[in-house]
Design a protein around this nucleic acid. Structure first.
Ligand code: MN
Ligand code: MN
Ligand code: ZN
Ligand code: ZN
Lengths: 143, 143
DNA sequence: AATGCAAATGAGAACGATTATCATTCACCT
DNA sequence: AGGTGAATGATAATCGTTCTCATTTGCATT
């Protein structure tokens, strides 16, 4: 019971087609948590599961609208997607190796609501990324 | 003494040309604090100060590298620039009217350093935008 | 299992933002 | 004023993404 269930798709109003199952399966495989359209496209190509690039873009957007995926706009121009696990979190991105770490800090979260309220805004959502240097062994950390 | 000082440019290693003075002057005029390349281009056109779009892009990047401007990547694809006033701040963007409000919260700032440190990162910088609905009179706030 | 049809796909064109090219013009130092 | 290397601007090129549309597919119905 660890394969992409077509029910997942039917439940959100999307007919379960081969391209959609492959793309969802790739995210569920857990190999790579945060992937761009290009990442997904190349990954599928590499395993012989050819899916058109246009379809990848379309499906990723549909999955996001259906709540299956979450889209992030990190620096670098391209959108990145990840499985929606229900719980919100923010990201730390290593400027050297691109490694992404996730975190959640309730103090930061509540402070944002407070600040917004004081300025007369009703928060919809937010985007927080910390850009830093990580200490991973393979990281070509220069400083 | 409220006009763009050519010294500003010389001091950061940029020769003071007409296009550069016009662009810097526009930001210093205080009319609009956050502007995209397109915003700057159109603003200059509207006052007869024609500057090529390529030059606008080039100069904005140069000003950012020189520390005169700060670049932000809000949602919507295009980069937005603002005068660098030395002090860091984050933004609340209204999803309806695009109105941008600035804020600084030391609790949020310090919490970020702490979170990063615990994960073994040395913070370089960060990007925080709150997307919300504002209460401005002219805002076509739908909800 | 064959049929029908709306929905999905994929190749390629189109698009918007940004960057690269390169011939012409300009800022600034003799 | 003249010389030179940097800056400009028109345009082509690039990148990520969306659009178009002819073809294929999922799936409900015979
Ligand atoms: Mn994540
Ligand atoms: Mn600002
Ligand atoms: Zn958060
Ligand atoms: Zn901040």
């Amino acid at each position: 019971m660890d394969k992409s269930q077509p029910e997942n798709l039917k439940n959100v109003g999307l007919k379960s087609t081969l391209p959609r199952l492959k793309i969802l399966g790739l995210f569920e495989s857990g190999q790579e948590r945060h992937m761009s359209a290009e990442d997904v496209y190349k990954q599928l190509l590499s395993t012989g599961d050819d899916v058109g690039l246009a379809t990848v873009y379309r499906v990723l957007t549909q999955f996001q609208q259906a709540g299956l995926l979450v889209r992030h706009n990190f620096e670098g121009g391209k959108s990145v997607f990840e499985l929606n696990q229900g719980k919100h979190h923010d990201h730390i991105v290593c400027l050297q190796c691109g490694h992404v770490e996730e975190f959640y800090d309730s103090a930061i979260e509540s402070r944002q609501k407070k600040v917004a309220a004081e300025l007369g805004f009703e928060v919809h959502d937010h985007s927080l990324q910390i850009y830093a240097d990580c200490t991973k062994a393979k990281c070509p950390n220069k400083r």
